[in-house]
Design a protein around this nucleic acid. Structure first.
Lengths: 232, 232
DNA sequence: AATAATATTATGTAGTTACATATTCTTCTG
DNA sequence: CAGAAGAATATGTAACTACATAATATTATT
């Protein structure tokens, strides 16, 4: 006797295996939570918890009254953690270095205005800086900061502290947006990253807002060989 | 009167704002769920739900008995959906095309064995294929499939159906692993993707398992200009 | 004072009940 | 038969209770 209680992970596993085994094919409707609960001899809340997890993973879709069904178009849903660059470098056991390349105040180009979803062009702070690992260039960032949202940053000495670190600690964002693509190193990037002209570089673009107010948008050009990974 | 009940999203929002406002700084300990619940006049389960969400987003960390604290090293945690290539192309309003380039049976190279975490080299099925959008090359995939785990694939006509689609419908995976990086187009890739030698291309590598059994590992080289995006 | 055993405690989870909400399904109406 | 109004229903959420679990803190032991 004394078989342990059915946990929501047990339920999730059971349903997942049934989906993997083809008991329920993509698009198929699953039984109601209540029926599954009765079947597995547990509470509906337990099934609900399991189902929510499967839904969050993109394995099933749930709709009120409509019931639960296996996603017709299975997606690979991955969680990606992009750490602070300093932390990332230090986690590799390297020494982190930071260098301000340029700082200017100018009318933001249309691409920046578009990334923020603004309609009117406006003056913003542009910060170009280099992150280094063991004195070798690691990531070059070209950043635009909304001076309307973050006027204080104008008074910060960005030669000492990276704009990113200041922002993280003083103006955390509530919403963001990410884009990844590959780009060829032009002459100036090759020089900055100490690499060869024409090298393929992974670029990470990130835009952040606090509420609806734009904070910053940045284009991080990584050094050759840089890889982005996801566990799980 | 009749102020609606406090929902877990209300609680999450409130705590999140307090963190954003610096009421709780990175590393700081938050009150116990029970105290927050008493404070906001709701049940502990409601606070628990809110806290779990914040923890899943990488904003706070929770430990039994240790309590809840704001993550010391804030990360940008993003969810990335990588759709089936056919679906992706069709979602753009283009016509999907598929073309088998080569199929062979060979001893998998060390990189593949390593990706799977295997110790012994083994013979696997290699499938090279091209995905097209409106008759233009879109993604080239170089795939290795474990014939131990998926012997049936040997009998499938891969000129008609892509290995990916067959696998998705017949051998769903339970675990996977993703890597992104940039690569320069060499002569053969330039020809396959109908682009120029030296172009920077975004590469997506994916390895999948069912339980601990390796299914497939693939290197998807995307056409120039390809972008990977995440909402929220 | 170091180590092991024990108590304490904050979060995690399951059950139950009750009601909210978003759809879908049905029925009524023109 | 089309469209609107209303009923039915599966999932979503909240409260409350009870207990499980994993750390941490305390006490006992050598």
């Amino acid at each position: 006797m004394a078989s342990r209680q059915v946990t929501w992970k047990d339920v999730r596993e059971k349903i997942h295996v049934e989906i993997l085994d083809g008991v329920y094919a993509p698009g198929d409707k699953l039984p109601r939570d209540m029926d599954i609960a009765a079947n597995l001899n547990c509470a509906r809340t337990t099934v609900q918890r399991a189902m929510r997890d499967l839904a969050e993973r993109g394995i099933v879709e749930r709709r009120r009254k409509g019931g639960t069904r296996v996603r017709a178009d299975p997606v690979t849903r991955a969680t990606l953690d992009i750490p602070d660059t300093r932390k990332e470098v230090e986690a590799k056991g390297a020494t982190y270095g930071y260098q301000l390349v340029r700082k200017s105040l100018a009318l933001a180009p249309r691409s920046v205005i578009a990334a923020f979803g603004l309609s009117e062009p406006e003056k913003m702070l542009r910060v170009e800086a280099l992150h280094m690992a063991d004195n070798r260039p690691y990531i070059f960032e070209d950043r635009w900061v909304s001076t309307n949202t973050v006027p204080e940053l104008l008074d910060i000495d960005l030669a000492t502290q990276s704009a990113n670190e200041w922002l993280i600690h003083n103006r955390p964002y509530s919403r963001f947006d990410l884009r990844f693509y590959a780009e060829t190193a032009d002459a100036s990037m090759a020089e900055l990253l100490d690499t060869r002209l024409g090298d393929a570089l992974l670029v990470i673009e990130r835009t952040t807002w606090i509420g609806n107010a734009p904070i910053t948008t940045l284009k991080a050009t990584t050094c050759p060989g840089y890889q982005l990974r996801t566990g799980v």
